[in-house]
Nucleic acid binder design. Sequence first.
DNA 1: CGACCAGTTGAGCTTGTTCAAGGCATGTGG
DNA 2: CCACATGCCTTGAACAAGCTCAACTGGTCG
Lengths: 187, 187
Amino acid sequence: MIILSGWAARIRQLKDGRRQIMSFLLPGDLIGNCPHDMPVAVSSVVSLTPLHYCAAPPTKDSRALQQAFAISSAIEEAHLLNQITRLGRLTAEERIIDLFLELYERLSLCGLADHGQIVFPLTQEVLADATGLTQVHVNRTLQALRKQGDITLNTGSLTILDPGGLAERMGRAATSVTSLHLPITLT
Amino acid sequence: MIILSGWAARIRQLKDGRRQIMSFLLPGDLIGNCPHDMPVAVSSVVSLTPLHYCAAPPTKDSRALQQAFAISSAIEEAHLLNQITRLGRLTAEERIIDLFLELYERLSLCGLADHGQIVFPLTQEVLADATGLTQVHVNRTLQALRKQGDITLNTGSLTILDPGGLAERMGRAATSVTSLHLPITLT
DNA sequence: CGACCAGTTGAGCTTGTTCAAGGCATGTGG
DNA sequence: CCACATGCCTTGAACAAGCTCAACTGGTCG
């Protein structure tokens, strides 16, 4: 499957109700790409907005397509690694900025960003599940970011006022990865 | 490459010196498995003990081997997802227990565990980099676990006193994944 | 012996949590 | 049109988990 529009998330839910979002799935992302015969459900996918998707082309047809899938899953793994360092070693403020920058960069690659601005359908609770924080603390951290003039965020729209400067300030490492262009064109 | 003996870790280092361990590499694990043409360094690998490894057999030879590699990287991804929920939603004590259980289960599959006991070459500092805690807090948490009678840990050897019970107590989810046997035999 | 490395301990502090309440917008049924 | 529910955001105050800094212990190895 390939997502044409809308946002989804890979999520895991603990028995006592705690939830953790592994990664976000944005337009252009592949979902359920499973190159072996023993599928095991290790996380579930939930949609965060109305979603449009279609079946991905069969992989065996062309070598180029296989490459594309392989690269796609490498990028996905890079996102997981980013998420791990976010959760393990960044402060609340850094986690949120870093996540925002990642989402912004990913959407930019699909032409879905405009001067630091993107559509942003996430609630603070979802943000909390992604960053390993509580909803209350996400709220307070967002307020701080607004006060510092780093972002503008109101219903449905996020603006990162100086993406380059922020990325610089954070010493954001993995930017290079996102410059890999997927040779897949959305229809 | 495939690891024959010894431990290694996938690690990322931030500019200001903070470090985060993504995952541990144990005997039987593949390393640098990269099925596409555009390798990008997104984490580095460091050895934690003296290491023995050899070249993995070329993948194109057999369909079964391709399967094996695919399954191996699926398991690796499952480990990353485990790490994400550990860092995002578990407390210090839970993070350490959960990690210990994962290591124990993985070593068990290679026949490297014995009645809840495994060799354990990690320093508390490495443990801190893996769990997103400080070395000092890891120390205190380990003491608590010892006091509660959950583990025995002294130089080079970890014993989990009741692995089943602990796993139960933690509502450990992803156990099923580790029951996938890699059809690779170590030489 | 001295240096070094890993582990241990204490005291004070910061970050983020918990619990609980209230605000504001939207939608819905009477 | 009003009453009421619901979802999301906001706020406050008390609290706890984990951090920082700094010092000390004990083992190992040259």
